[in-house]
């Protein structure tokens, strides 16, 4: 199984319009290492130079960077550049996974000591800031999970149902649109579909986590360009113990594109939902406009030509962006 190598460039620029006197930012912009993903190279360039910086890991094991700016500034430019290698990791046979009720029961508390992997999965079993657990959600997912259906078959059916019934519409929602509203209006973007699918799974008593990352920007010849390729993307990971070769108990689903992510999805971080791993979250004092310009470029490294702009020095890039 040959890994596919990628170069990713994720640029964010704020033009505040007036002086920001104090700013603190939390960055989830460095990719995490997974069983199927190696990080060969990674760096973050920031302009202006932060007064203070700390790198660490968050409570879910994702790399995180905190920076602070104590001097007045009118713009902020952050560029994360990474080279990663993704190994094929699709589960072989979805039908071989455990019946969904069995997974649900393993996650339920019974006053005995749980298996470590089950306990670990319970972190992604309950409500979180963007994921409510309501009976409407369980009702929506119910027909995907008839008795004894293997959990991955059920999850795939749920993903397909969301893809079929929902319309991709960037104008319909914001980062704070509640998941029940998305369910009602049947429109949204990748974050919304991921949150919705997670909420449905958790409402069924299953563990599901939110994954942020990237898609290949330009499709290989003959394949359609995937939705969400020009920005950071989000999808879902479902806890299905024992169903993956190579040790992982989690299997990814992309409800925005109705497919199981393999070597065309690059993982940045995972958490309970968007709020745990927002790529760039900050608090500023002062400033006018706070709408950022975000640009994401993902290029496979085995392609012959690497676009010009990806070879440029960060400084000259900053002026153009």
């Amino acid at each position: 199984m040959t890994p596919v190598r990628y170069r990713v460039l994720h640029e964010t620029r704020y033009d505040y319009g007036s002086l920001v006197s104090l700013s603190q930012q939390q960055l989830h912009l460095s990719p995490r290492v997974l069983e199927w993903q190696q990080v060969e190279e990674q760096r973050i360039d920031i302009e202006p130079v932060p007064t203070w910086r700390r790198d660490g890991r968050d409570a879910f094991g994702n790399p995180v960077t905190w920076v602070a700016f104590h001097a007045p500034h009118e713009m902020l430019f952050i560029r994360s550049m990474m080279t990663v290698a993704v190994t094929p990791h699709l589960p072989k046979v979805l039908e071989d996974s455990l019946p969904w009720e069995e997974v649900r029961d393993r996650l339920a508390y019974d006053a005995t000591d749980p298996l470590p992997e089950d306990l670990d999965a319970t972190r992604f079993l309950f409500e979180s800031p963007h994921v409510r657990i309501k009976h409407e959600l369980a009702a929506y997912a119910a027909d995907c999970f008839p008795p004894d259906r293997p959990i991955l078959v059920g999850a795939k059916a749920l993903m397909a149902k969301i893809f079929r019934e929902f319309t991709f519409d960037p104008e319909a929602t914001t980062v704070s649109t509640p998941v029940l509203e998305v369910l009602e209006n049947k429109r949204g973007v990748c974050q919304d579909f991921a949150h919705l699918m997670i909420a449905c799974l958790r409402a069924m008593g299953l563990a599901a986590r939110y994954v942020s990352g990237y898609l290949l920007t330009r499709p290989p010849p003959g394949k359609p360009r995937l939705i969400g390729a020009d920005a950071s993307h989000a999808w879902v990971s479902v806890y299905a113990p024992g169903s993956q070769q190579g040790g992982s108990d989690w299997v990814d689903f992309d409800p925005t594109n109705d497919l199981l992510p393999d070597t065309e999805h690059i993982t940045l971080a995972f958490g309970r939902d968007f709020s745990d791993i927002s790529p760039l979250r900050g608090i500023i004092l002062g400033g006018g406009g706070t709408e950022p310009d975000v640009a994401v470029t993902v290029v496979p490294l085995d392609e012959e030509e690497i676009p010009e702009e990806m070879l440029d020095e960060p400084d000259s890039e900053a002026d153009e962006a």
């Binding site: 409570a59 508390y109 306990l119 319970t122 309950f126």
Partner: peptide
């Protein structure tokens, strides 16, 4: 306490009061 089953995960992870960034 969670690993030994002395406390249900729901009463920890299920609570908004469990502040994840403060773990550790």
């Amino acid at each position: 306490l969670l690993a030994e089953g002395l406390l249900p995960p729901a009463l920890v992870y299920g609570q908004h009061g469990y502040l994840w960034p403060c773990r550790g």
